[in-house]
Design a binder for these strands. Structure first.
Length: 414
RNA sequence: GUGGCAGUAGCUCAGCUGGUAGAGCUCCGGCUUGUGGUGCCGGCGGUCGCGGGUUCGAGCCCCGUCUGCCACCCCA
């Protein structure tokens, strides 16, 4: 009886079992962000295509081949958002948030879209949560953002997490560095493996990850970005590290760390989880001091991160237990339906989780259902107006005062 | 976008060298003439991903396609 329709490639349905784990994650994130003063915001699921071309960068994989782009009936080119930072910066500018007390601290959560080949942990519609701290270039902001993601993963109990930290320096020094690296690779072309050699001009940084013996030897003497940081960039990076050290957050400096988005400057970081396979990054981000200016605003420093909700859930791999109910209101006679419904509403208002039979079951079926949904107690309404209160764990059952059923249930005694 | 593996009931899977589908779990009902959980019995439920081909005959062989997974790539 398989339906002819299925969810489109790379998309998925969230079913109740996973919905519970998801709700827990979202609640934990909301609390952690709120306690640190990050206010929840939301932006549209699609934006002007040019926002991403300018913000993320025309030469990036995301813009070149992964965007869901379409034209509306007014011939505007729109794109389902592939990431969240550029849209938030757009909103920051559009609503004059640079006039607010700085920094402006925002959090968000929602669906994002990238046309990639699907795999576990990689979807065409996926969900990210993240924060952005806009309007300060202090290393304290870098450290705060990293700590909050670290807190979240720690509170959720994500196992096997590792933090990698790097720095790209300014846009100019990064560009200069890449030229140096390419020059180094070209100078040793003969010693490199073929695939590395072919990618020298496409992605020279990739050479650092090679398993090839000859390539590794060449990379030993290769220049690193971190090693080439100039005065202020080096100082900023040192301060971020000192702050993380002081907070007791473990990290590994990774000079080969790169991000696929053009807007990053200075600090970049990545939380990876070894339980995940190829798509091992569960969250990452960095500083993007040039982005807002790039979008036509005043020069405004900022830092933030995004974390993949599906990847965190995958890493947790937890079987979220069904919640259970405090009570179930059963009826011994169909004439009690109205009374049962009214009582359930009253009990719910009193803070008790209650269900009633919505399927017209007999008493036996109702008890069975109550057991199945994990109801702790069942209130049985008799045809003559009396009531029985049954403890589903012990099986004990006694008469309840029909005039005080809410008190009977909230009083605790059974 | 490239290469590889897989696709049988809602779920987990079996199905020998091709002879026209089976188990367990779930769900519904009975044993139990209003009272759940264990047990026993019964029932519902399958275009064997989809399309084409070979064959007297295909879940099983061949081709195509879709979807998932693994790696590359990329990133959350």
């Amino acid at each position: 009886m398989a339906s002819r329709f299925q969810a489109p490639r790379g998309t998925f349905d969230v079913l109740p079992e996973q919905g519970r784990a998801r709700a827990r994650l979202e609640r934990a994130a909301a609390e952690i962000f709120a306690r640190a003063g990050y206010e929840p915001v939301a932006t549209p699921a699609f934006e002007d295509t040019a926002l991403f071309e300018r913000g993320v960068g025309k030469s990036t994989d995301i813009v070149r081949k992964e965007m869901f782009t379409f034209e509306d009936k007014g011939e505007r080119s729109l794109t389902l958002r592939p990431e969240g930072t550029a849209p938030i910066c757009r909103a920051y500018l559009e609503h004059g948030m640079h006039k607010l007390a700085q920094p402006v601290k925002l959090s968000y959560l929602g669906p994002f879209f990238r046309h990639e080949r699907p795999q576990a942990g990689r979807y065409r519609q996926f969900h990210q949560l993240g924060i952005e701290c806009i309007g300060t270039d202090s290393p304290l902001a870098d450290a705060e953002v990293i700590m909050l993601l670290s807190d979240l993963l720690g509170e959720l109990g994500v196992p096997g997490v590792e933090l990698r930290l790097g720095s790209l320096g300014s846009l100019e020094s990064r560009r200069a560095y890449l030229e140096d690296l390419k020059a180094h690779l070209h100078a040793h072309e003969g010693e490199l493996s073929r695939d590395v050699r072919e990618r020298i001009d496409v992605n020279p940084l990739r050479a650092f990850d090679s398993d090839d013996e000859g390539t590794r030897a060449v990379m030993e003497s290769a220049p690193t970005i971190v090693g080439q940081l100039d005065g202020e960039d080096a100082e900023h990076f040192a301060e971020v590290r000192a702050l993380l050290d002081a907070a007791g957050i473990a990290y590994a400096v990774d000079p080969t760390l790169v991000r696929g988005l053009d807007y990053y400057t200075r600090t970049i970081f990545s939380f990876v989880c070894d339980a995940l396979g190829a798509q091992s990054e569960i969250g990452g981000g960095g500083r993007y001091d040039g982005l807002i200016e790039q979008l036509g605003g005043p020069a405004t420093p900022a830092v933030g991160f995004a974390a993949g909700i599906e990847r965190i859930l995958l890493a947790l791999d937890e079987e979220a237990p069904a919640a259970g109910r405090d009570a179930f209101v059963a009826i011994a006679d169909p004439g009690q339906r109205g009374r049962a419904m009214a009582l359930a509403v009253e009990l719910r208002h009193a803070g008790i989780s209650v269900e009633v039979d919505l399927a017209g079951r007999g008493l036996k079926g109702q008890l069975k259902h109550a057991n199945r949904i994990g109801a702790a107690r069942v209130l049985i309404l008799e045809a003559d107006g009396s009531a029985q209160l049954r403890d589903m764990e012990t099986g004990e059952q006694r008469a309840a005062d029909p005039g005080n059923l809410v008190d009977e249930m909230t009083g605790g005694g059974s």
